[in-house]
Simulated assay, not measured.
Amino acid sequence: MRRIRTTSITLAAVAALALPALPAATASAATTQATACPTGWGSLPEVRPTATTEPLTNVRTGRHACYDRMVIDVPGAGRSGLGYSVRYVERLYQDGSGRPIPVGGGAVLEVRVAAPAYDHETGEPTYPGRVSRPLPGVDLTGYRTFRDTRFGGSFEGETLVGLGLRARLPFRVQVLTDRIVLDVAHNWTGAR
Rank of each mutant, 00 (worst) to 15 (best):
Q94Y: 04
R99S: 14
T52V: 04
V89I: 01
I4H: 05
L140T: 08
P55M: 03
E156M: 13
P136R: 00
A77H: 03
G76W: 01
V181W: 14
A24P: 15
S43N: 06
A12N: 01
E54T: 09
V59M: 06
V71D: 13
T35H: 09
A65P: 06
V138S: 04
S28P: 11
V181G: 05
G152Q: 01
V14N: 00
L169Q: 12
R69L: 03
T126V: 00
A34S: 12
R91N: 09
A115M: 06
P116V: 01
V47Q: 13
L22R: 10
T159F: 08
E46L: 11
G190E: 06
R112K: 15
S154Q: 07
E90W: 09
D95Y: 14
P102Q: 10
S154W: 13
C66M: 10
T31Q: 11
T32H: 09
A107D: 12
A15G: 00
L163K: 09
S8I: 14
V103W: 00
D178A: 00
W188Y: 05
T189N: 05
T39D: 06
M70Y: 12
P100L: 12
G105K: 09
A21M: 13
W188D: 04
G123N: 01
T52N: 02
V111R: 05
L92M: 12
L17A: 14
H120N: 10
P55Q: 07
Y127M: 00
L17G: 10
V138H: 02
R99M: 08
G106P: 09
V14P: 00
V103L: 01
T7H: 00
A21P: 05
V59D: 05
G81V: 00
P136E: 04
A24T: 15
V161E: 08
D178N: 08
R144P: 12
T189Y: 04
L135K: 13
Y93T: 15
T50K: 14
G81S: 03
L182K: 01
A15I: 06
V111I: 14
Y93L: 13
P75Y: 00
F146H: 07
A18Y: 13
